[in-house]
């Protein structure tokens, strides 16, 4: 019996749950325009996970990276949820570097 997948599944559920929290909080204070940075960080985590020999660490970093990429695609919808009054809304956001350029790009939404 190999219990690695079972415990990893539970751990990843918490990683995904944490994703809900940072998407909500992150969008409230920083805004959805940070999505390219979050996506890049997620991709970097996945690439980094390839070079970690410990299975647990590699799997958790990889799953966290995937959760970051998913979260980056949720930021735009979360911004709309805030504007619709479903979540607390903060008008003043902390813009990312190159915000004007990012505004011209279509934010991903899956």
């Amino acid at each position: 019996m190999n219990s690695f997948g079972f415990w990893l599944g539970i751990a990843v559920l918490f990683v995904i749950g944490l994703g809900f929290v940072w998407v909500i909080r992150g969008e409230r204070y920083f805004g959805f325009l940070w999505w390219p940075y979050v996506m890049t960080l997620g991709a970097a985590c996945i690439v980094g996970a390839l070079f970690i020999s410990n299975n647990w660490a590699s799997a958790l970093i990889g799953a966290a990276g995937a959760s970051l990429i998913w979260g980056s695609t949720e930021l735009k919808e979360q911004a709309v949820r805030g504007e619709l009054g479903w979540y607390p809304f903060r008008e003043k956001k902390i813009d990312p570097p190159f915000a004007k350029v990012i505004k011209k790009w279509r934010a991903p939404s899956l």
Partner: peptide, 8 residues
């Protein structure tokens, strides 16, 4: 180590 990529 492909475990992390598989998990991702």
């Amino acid at each position: 180590n492909f475990v992390g990529l598989a998990a991702a």
